[in-house]
Design a protein around this nucleic acid. Structure first.
Lengths: 335, 335
DNA sequence: ATGAAAGCGCTAACAC
DNA sequence: GTGTTAGCGCTTTCAT
């Protein structure tokens, strides 16, 4: 069962291949009768144009690449949703790759996507100062980073003002009366988490809170070290009254650990997250958090990419404003 | 800045295009010196082979398609993760499309993917008896359904024994002492949800529980009708003591509605879900549910697809066994 | 061990 | 309006 080609259609319809092509591409100036002849032949043979051949010829694939750190992470799933749906409306398919947070996989993905001649790439997870990716972004190939970037002076991106986000969070806690706040970060290889930590530190200064490096911990999201950390903190003579998690996912782990220790949230400790993924609004979780408007972020990223694809040599950067989402895991400290 | 091609490399290295091709493809019988010459030219020109041209020639794209109903739904995100990671290990990229649960989008996706000459397609959401998709699956194109199928006699698939799953759930509730169980289904256009409802009904018979059609409701996942339904049920003289949700997502909504009504779970009502997505294990949710081993399901789906791609004319069907995941949203009924 | 030439399935001038 | 021809960037016989 060989593939049926436009040549076969042409023969069957008694026309040239060019005419078949014209029908496929809705070329207007054609005799209605020949168009119908061709359409009929296409029907009968069950012909579907080979987009690969088409792409080779036209030097456009109508595909873009989307690279994320972990598609099973709701943040990426929810942003991918937006990008994929919106891309389809503009006639693009998306090749999705998951780096599992390994920068070597990012590089491989880029290579593979470029080889497949995608027209642009959206990248959700990139290490700070990743030199290969930086180099690539500077070739002029349409690339948009979102969520994380390499550096504020490199490439096109749409990110949150993460520093400010952390400050908004600290402000909220301080206003509730908290004076001793622990901070639990994910890996600092990403600009967003690193920015948040910076913001946290700056906020401490602004509110004249003492800086205690033991109150700050860098962890993997999944790490059960979080539980150990929490326990150690709470056993101190003067324990923190609030925990600031650098992401909602981390906050969930903190909440879980707190529960294991028999601590009530928010009565015993306040917990605040960062991202505002969908599930955080669930009433059984109901996490106070900082929104980074991630769906909007994704939408802008795609829009910008399409712009870059159309017009070379643009440069587009967006920095979104954080927003406090007040829910029920934070309250005034005990006593 | 024109693309650099293998022809350019050939010229620069002073060899033929064929030789460049041989280098790219690691053809063994070559003089070491010419290989190095070519490699050097590739380096200097920054040449990356055009996979589109390659695909056209070799009739293989090293891409597969993955079609899901909603990638922001954790079930699909978590299964997509498995499929994408595993596919990459076998040298395949995946083009992901999201149908937003519209069967017309499924059909368009298939068309687009076939046009792009993917080597196979994995489909996570298909309506019962969808005739176009059925037709397509019967052409012999490598297709594997998972999670839902068209009919048990059609196509290749890996699904759960959903009927049995529902029975396992009812058994659990009955053993706890529940005699009046409400059932909240999602749309019945999918084989999995429809199978679960069937299983629920059969289980009622098996345990001699009275069938009351008012206890069964078909809803959209997001529907706030669920809240209305729950309220109506609880205002009855003899309200149900347990609610069986056809998916974890639906169960979350039920839990939410229960909380709004001031009902304690599991003390006032028991709730059981279906799927066992990651977040269900969160201690603040801690949902009793039926596992469909979704990651394993995804892994098998990909494996089977790869088999189909290698060997035509196979026929592979897997039906996985459900498993009760006992957590804390179910207990003995009051009184 | 390497080169020449044909061809994958389509589109795009250019003719008529 | 439609056909002819060349070519997109590779791989693959077939020579040598």
């Amino acid at each position: 069962m060989d593939r049926v080609t436009s040549k076969d259609v042409a023969k069957k319809a008694g026309v040239s291949q060019a005419t078949v092509s014209r029908v496929i591409n809705n070329y207007p100036h054609m005799k209605q009768s020949t168009r119908e002849k061709v359409l009929k032949a296409i029907q009968e043979l069950g012909f579907t144009p080979d987009q690969i051949a088409r792409s080779l010829n036209m030097r456009k694939t109508s595909s873009i690449g989307l690279i994320v750190g972990d598609i099973s992470n709701p943040f990426f799933a929810e942003t991918a949703k937006v990008i994929i749906s919106q891309a389809r409306k503009s006639g693009f398919d998306v090749i999705l790759t998951d780096t599992e947070h390994e920068s070597v996989n990012l590089e491989k993905s880029i290579e593979s996507l470029v080889g497949k001649r995608v027209e642009g790439i959206i990248i959700g997870s990139v290490d700070l100062y990743d030199s290969k990716t930086r180099q690539f972004a500077e070739t002029g190939f349409p690339v948009v980073f979102y969520n994380t970037n390499i550096h504020e002076d490199i490439g096109n991106y749409v990110v949150l003002n993460n520093k400010k986000g952390a400050k908004v969070g600290v402000k909220h806690l301080v206003e509730l009366g908290h004076r001793k706040i622990a901070y639990i970060s994910g890996t600092l290889k990403y600009s967003n988490l690193s920015g948040r930590l910076e913001g946290f530190k700056e906020a401490l200064k602004e509110y004249d809170l003492p800086f205690d490096k033991h109150l700050i911990k860098e962890f993997d999201v999944s790490s059960n070290g979080i539980s150990t950390f929490l326990k150690a903190q709470m056993e101190q003579p003067n324990p923190p009254t609030a925990f600031f998690a650098a992401s909602d996912q981390i906050a969930f782990t903190v909440m879980e650990a707190a529960r294991e220790l028999g601590l009530q949230i928010p009565d015993d400790i306040s917990v605040i997250g960062f991202d505002n993924i969908n599930i955080s609004a669930n009433p059984f979780i109901n996490l106070t958090t900082i929104s980074q408007q991630h769906r909007r972020m994704a939408s802008i990223a795609l829009e910008n990419l399409l712009t870059l694809i159309k017009n070379d040599n643009e440069m587009i950067r967006n920095v979104l404003e954080p927003e406090l989402i007040l829910r029920s895991t934070t309250t005034t400290p005990r006593k």
